[in-house]
Each structure stands twice: as C-alpha cells, then as structure tokens.
C-alpha cells in the first residue's frame, strides 16, 4: 500500500497505536487487515445485511442492477476525482463538466446532425480541455483548486443553461449511440453503463497501481518538494490529472444521456460533492498522497445502496439525505479508526 503523504499527518496516532498493539496479529489476519478498502467493504456488507433483514426483496439481482447503474455514473466521475485528489487537488466543477459535455454531445447529434463517431470524441476532448483549464488556472495563479473549480463550476453550469434555454434535449427515436452509452440492458436491470464503469475502473486501477505514472501521482500529492527533488514533473502530473477528471466527468455525462435518452443542463448538480464523498468513504485522503480506485467504486456503490435500500425499507423519504450524511460520517470514522488501530499495515 503506497503512502507518501499522510504518514507525517497521522504520525502521532500511529505511535500511540503501536503502543496499544504490542504484538502484531498473525500473518493471515495481517494481510486481510492491510486491505485499504476494508473500511468501506465492512460498511457496505453491513448495509446489505441490514437492508436485506428489513426487506428481503433488497437482495435480488434486479435491485443490484439498479444500484450498479446508479453507481456507474457517479463512479466514473469519482474515479477522475480520486485520481486528482491523490495528486493533491480538487475539482468541484465535475458536475458542470458532466452537464456541459452531455449537452454538447446531445446538441451535436440532434441539432447539428453530426456523426456520433465525430461528436463523441469532440465532446470528450472539450471535457478534457475544461479540466486542463482548471489545472492551468490553478497552477499559474496558485489559487487553491477548490476555489478555481468553484468558479468554473458556476461558469460551465451557466453556459449549459444558456445554450439550452434550461430545457432538456431529447432523442425520441431508437439510437445506437444511446444504446452503446447506457441505454441497453445487459441483464435484467443491469445497464451497459456498468460495463463502462468496469472498464474505467480497470484502466485507472492499473495506471495507478502498476505503472511509474501511478507512483508519480502518489508522490505529487504526498510530499511535493520531495517528489520534485526526485525528478517527478509535479505540474505536468497535476495538469494531466485535471484533464482526466474532466474527461471522466464528461464520460459520466454521456452515460446519463444514454441512460435517459435526454440530457438536461441541470443534471449532475450534486455530482462533485458525491464524488468526493465516494472517494473519502472509499479511503482516499483529503490531504492527497493516498487513496484507491477500487475503494472509490465501493464508496459509490455504498451511496447508491443507501438510497435504494432506504426506499425499499420504507424510510420516510425526506429523511434520505440526512441518513446519507450520517452514513458518510460513520464510514469515514471507521476508515480513520482502522487506519489508526492497524497503523502497522503501512
């Protein structure tokens, strides 16, 4: 498990934990407890057990198909956000990039009759440029990315509203483009968007864990000066990751467009904070330098399960958001406690 950054931050807790645990547990336990995604995994399994106990219909393929479809759009965007967070930066504008890129694609294929083979790469490239701009502004002016992307969040949302007049753009006839993006069912309620999530997860899991670039990302978000001294091109890594966050946010927008046969300029409104929440539930540090892609996906699945589960057990509807908030805080506390208690796992 790679950690360059937050060792220093939780160093005190680590020292204390070591004192509490004079003997490290046996090797087999050690390996299990060393899984970074353990916290979110425990939370997810606990939720599934509770929901199934209260409502047996929760534990069906139909339900999980729906949960995965919901997690797909959030998850794809959250992978980009995680990648960027590990490099020590935030992108609050992903929800607006999601909407703008989606609306752009919808306009290109409907109003301007552009071929999807051209429109998809073009809209995706634009999403990447949105991300790149976030990076350039942040690095050139040294404004915190939190603020840069707060501004660009409003800007791109506003532009999406302006070019559509606030109304959704719909495709009312059968469309191969929509089917490929997210329309077609793979099995029961499971949509093709879940496959896209799997592909994105695999690619970025490998990139982060198996390549030199992955090491650079961890180093950039960890101790920046040390990374620079070691020859890591810190700024280039950040620019690439900002662009990746943009491209994946756009991709998530396309998936929703495919799923709904419509694209509204107001969609993706809560995406940025939910993506950060998914990452944090999955064990990614807000300080940069540590995190995992699989954890983020499990975080996204956890959040989708909570919403579907609460409806199915008949919880009062206006309370969902409150429940969700409580679970997020509990999951993060669990992560931090695991981290402290099993500090040796680094």
């Amino acid at each position: 498990m790679r950690d360059v950054g937050d060792k220093a931050i939780s160093g005190g807790a680590e020292a204390k934990a070591v004192k509490m645990l004079p003997a490290a547990p046996p090797e087999r336990w050690r390996r299990l407890l060393a899984i970074r995604e353990l916290g979110v995994l425990i939370a997810l399994i606990a939720l599934i057990i509770i929901f199934t106990w209260l409502q047996p219909a929760f534990l069906t393929l139909d339900t999980f198909g729906d949960i995965l479809t919901q997690a797909a759009e959030l998850g794809v965007a959250a992978v980009g956000v995680t990648f960027l967070m590990i490099a020590g930066e935030f992108d609050l504008s992903v929800g607006s990039t999601f909407a703008f890129a989606g609306v752009l694609l919808a306009l290109l294929v409907t109003r301007f009759s552009v071929s999807p083979f051209l429109a998809v790469p073009a809209a995706l490239l634009f999403a990447g440029v949105i991300g790149l701009l976030n990076g350039l502004i942040t690095l050139a002016t040294r404004i915190p990315s939190f603020i840069t992307t707060l501004g660009t969040m409003m800007m791109w949302r506003g532009l999406a509203l302006a070019i559509t007049g606030g109304w959704p753009i719909s495709i009312l006839t059968a469309s191969t483009l929509l089917d490929v993006l997210g329309g077609r069912a793979v099995y029961s309620t499971l949509r093709i968007s879940a496959l896209w999530l799997l592909i994105v997860t695999a690619v970025f899991w490998a990139l982060l864990g198996k390549t030199a670039y992955g090491n650079w990302v961890f180093a950039t978000g960890g101790k920046r000066e040390a990374a620079r001294a070691l020859g890591v091109p810190v700024n280039r890594v950040k620019l690439i990751n900002f662009s990746v966050a943009g491209v994946l946010a756009g991709t998530a927008g396309f998936l929703q467009f495919g799923r709904m046969s419509s694209m509204s300029p107001v969609w993706g409104d809560a995406l940025a904070l939910e993506a950060i929440a998914a990452a944090v539930i999955g064990g990614t540090s807000l300080m940069g330098g540590s995190g995992t892609i699989v954890g983020t996906i499990l975080g996204a699945i956890t959040m989708a399960s909570i919403r579907v589960g609460l409806v199915m057990v008949g919880a009062p509807s206006y309370w969902y958001t409150a429940f969700l908030g409580v679970v997020i805080v509990l999951a993060v506390i669990l992560n931090v406690k695991l981290e402290e208690t099993f500090a040796w796992r680094r």
Partner: peptide, 8 residues
C-alpha cells in the same frame, strides 16, 4: 433532480 437516482 438526478434522473438515474430518480429512476432507481
């Protein structure tokens, strides 16, 4: 307002 959440 999220249509995917809404549907599920």
């Amino acid at each position: 307002q999220d249509p995917t959440k809404s549907l599920s």
